[in-house]
Amino acid sequence: MAGVLDSVNQRTQLVGQNRLELLLFKLGGIQRYGINVFKVREVLQCPPLTVLPKLNGAIRGVAYVRGQAISIIDLNLATGGRAIDDIENRFIIVTEYNRSVQGFLVGSVERIININWEDILPPPTGSSRYSYLTAVTEVDNRLVEVLDVEKVLDEIAPVNTEVTTQITIKNIKNKRVLVADDSSVARKQIQRTLTALGLECDLAKNGKEALDLLNEVAKTQPVFEKYALMISDVEMPEMDGYTLTSAIKSNTDMKDLYIILHTSLSGIFNQAMVEKVGANDFIAKFNPDELAIAVQKVINVDAE
């Protein structure tokens, strides 16, 4: 238990400091990519794969890792590149996203770096290649690209965004929700859920954009009068969700804004992180019913 608590403490030191750890890897060429260490369970040399019929073309097969069958996704193939060859000498990054475990087949794995979110920027626009990126940064004077894994997974196995639970929102007039998420797929998923509840929302692509918007609102009215709540991702370029939450809760004009952290990050560290930055709730992506119920609870209490 002491070891687990030490690990929690070490990881939560990054919370609110706008920092993260990236695992650097390559696919089929010289380009470097990064993935948040929080989402990585382990890195293994690619085990034998069992090929099953009717799988998505980007899934190279199924591997048995510590007694669990997981799909192995060729990350180069899934993002429009060529299939990774010589797979028995390649690696898989076992990750947990959106309540599921999967392995990403990559060419090679390099090292873990600690970096400031301010040094991670939104990707360029105008190229289909960049549509799979959520951010870019520079390490050792070379570009590192952070892939939009949620987009990759949604293309392979689309997430159901339909709200099936009967939800009633009281006094819905003038109730808006601010949504901050760097993934275009995630923003659309959340927007569809809110629309199904009859709610309108404003969308921000990262924490800095959301905070700038709130600062503008605060110039003319209390933030909570415009927004019933904010739903924020954790991983975002320029300013992450933890730093955004800390900034809001330390601002007298914004501190009453209800904040739900909504992220594909999962594991034992989340509750400690939520408590440290002062968020009101945490929901793992993506279950539309759970999100709808959480939103209903906030708005209906506010209406009473």
Results as ranks from 00 to 15, higher is better:
residue 233 D to N: 08
residue 222 P to K: 10
residue 292 A to T: 06
residue 265 L to S: 14
residue 92 I to N: 06
residue 181 D to M: 05
residue 137 T to G: 03
residue 10 Q to W: 04
residue 204 A to R: 03
residue 207 G to Q: 05
residue 280 N to R: 04
residue 206 N to D: 15
residue 212 D to K: 07
residue 192 R to K: 14
residue 239 M to I: 07
residue 19 R to E: 14
residue 153 L to A: 00
residue 249 K to Y: 00
residue 129 R to T: 12
residue 156 I to G: 01
residue 142 R to I: 07
residue 189 Q to M: 11
residue 230 M to Q: 03
residue 19 R to S: 09
residue 34 G to L: 02
residue 173 K to H: 10
residue 259 I to P: 01
residue 3 G to M: 12
residue 164 T to L: 09
residue 110 E to A: 14
residue 45 Q to R: 15
residue 241 G to S: 02
residue 122 P to D: 05
residue 275 E to F: 11
residue 120 I to V: 14
residue 16 G to R: 12
residue 46 C to H: 05
residue 289 D to V: 03
residue 236 M to W: 03
residue 202 D to N: 05
residue 90 R to Q: 10
residue 298 V to Y: 06
residue 121 L to E: 12
residue 34 G to N: 03
residue 253 D to H: 13
residue 208 K to F: 09
residue 16 G to L: 12
residue 171 N to E: 08
residue 150 E to N: 14
residue 163 V to N: 05
residue 124 P to A: 01
residue 10 Q to G: 00
residue 129 R to F: 11
residue 243 T to K: 15
residue 97 Y to P: 00
residue 280 N to D: 15
residue 292 A to I: 05
residue 267 G to V: 01
residue 188 K to A: 06
residue 48 P to S: 12
residue 278 G to N: 00
residue 228 A to G: 15
residue 249 K to L: 00
residue 211 L to R: 10
residue 260 I to L: 03
residue 221 Q to R: 13
residue 144 V to I: 13
residue 47 P to C: 11
residue 262 H to L: 08
residue 25 F to E: 01
residue 258 Y to C: 00
residue 283 I to D: 09
residue 167 I to S: 07
residue 262 H to K: 04
residue 279 A to K: 08
residue 131 S to K: 12
residue 137 T to C: 13
residue 221 Q to S: 11
residue 78 A to P: 09
residue 171 N to Q: 13
residue 23 L to A: 01
residue 289 D to Q: 05
residue 171 N to R: 14
residue 177 V to M: 07
residue 255 K to M: 02
residue 264 S to H: 01
residue 130 Y to W: 10
residue 167 I to K: 05
residue 115 I to V: 15
residue 124 P to K: 04
residue 290 E to R: 15
residue 120 I to E: 04
residue 17 Q to A: 15
residue 54 K to R: 13
residue 154 D to A: 04
residue 10 Q to S: 10
residue 276 K to H: 06
residue 99 R to Y: 01
residue 140 D to G: 01
residue 112 I to F: 11
residue 234 V to L: 15
residue 279 A to G: 05
residue 183 S to M: 02
residue 125 T to M: 07
residue 213 L to D: 00
residue 104 F to T: 08
residue 227 Y to T: 06
residue 72 I to H: 07
residue 175 K to M: 07
residue 191 Q to R: 13
residue 195 T to V: 12
residue 262 H to T: 00
residue 67 G to T: 04
residue 155 E to N: 09
residue 112 I to Q: 13
residue 266 S to Q: 11
residue 114 N to I: 09
residue 6 D to T: 04
residue 67 G to H: 07
residue 59 I to H: 09
residue 116 N to E: 15
residue 304 E to S: 12
residue 102 Q to V: 13
residue 293 I to A: 10
residue 269 F to P: 00
residue 132 Y to T: 01
residue 261 L to Q: 14
residue 208 K to N: 09
residue 247 A to L: 03
residue 187 R to Q: 11
residue 254 M to W: 00
residue 36 N to V: 10
residue 125 T to H: 08
